[in-house]
Amino acid sequence: MIKHHPKFELLQSYVNGELPASLAIGISIHADMCPECQHSIAQLTEQVAEHSFEEAPVRLDDLKSDSFTSFSDDIAEDDLFESMISNITFNDDADVVTEALKREVVFRDKTYELPTALSRIELGKAANIGKLSRSRLQLNEDEIHSSLLHINPGGGVPAHTHKGFELTVLLDGSFTDSRGEYNKGDFILLDGTFTHNPVSQNGCLCYTVANDALHFTQGINKLLNPIGSFIY
């Protein structure tokens, strides 16, 4: 059962489209598995939509007249809008939609179906250390790194600390750390620096996002100390 959810403020930013792609993807994946958050997101979206389109109330009856005077006071803009309308409606075709493509990944001979939010993102080749495998997701968000992290049964991430934040969304399986057990669908966002040592008895696949403040200064040390930079 899912026990860990995004905070309300985070859901709000998600609905507003204000989060970096990596975090928006994390929430999308969680909401896919969490009816509770799905419900909150639907309500928030309805509210923000109302709010966005209610200002400067326009009476619909005015719009039905043929004149464009209610458009705006700006003649140039009226022209622009009118040409947009004719450009857009020039072609009658509607978009064809198909079933969402299901993309699969394989980690150590185990096949996983990826959530829709990840279905088109380029994946780096998996790097393996011991029972860990990591594939970088090519989102191009500077210091924010997103990855798929796979832990083989009995594996774990050696104790580590972070500056900045660290998000883990469990796509499959479970793991435990000193604070308890985490299961499929859990959304675990940790701020600040702290130490933890997650261990997965039966194996798991996670979507992870982190902005490691040390990223740029570490330079070549990252290679000499593979574990530290390997995960995030």
């Binding site: 489209g17 792609a21 928006a24 993807i25 999308s28 978009d95 064809v96 939609v97 198909t98 079933e99 969402a100 493509l101 993309r103 829709t116 939010a117 990840l118 279905s119 088109r120 993102i121 380029e122 994946l123």
Partner: peptide, 22 residues
């Protein structure tokens, strides 16, 4: 990526080049 993150129709995506990129 937006339509994958916030689907505008349940269980459907607009047809495109997605898979080829992969």
């Amino acid at each position: 990526l937006s339509d994958d993150i916030w689907p505008i129709a349940e269980g459907a995506v607009t047809e495109d080049q997605a898979y080829e990129d992969h």
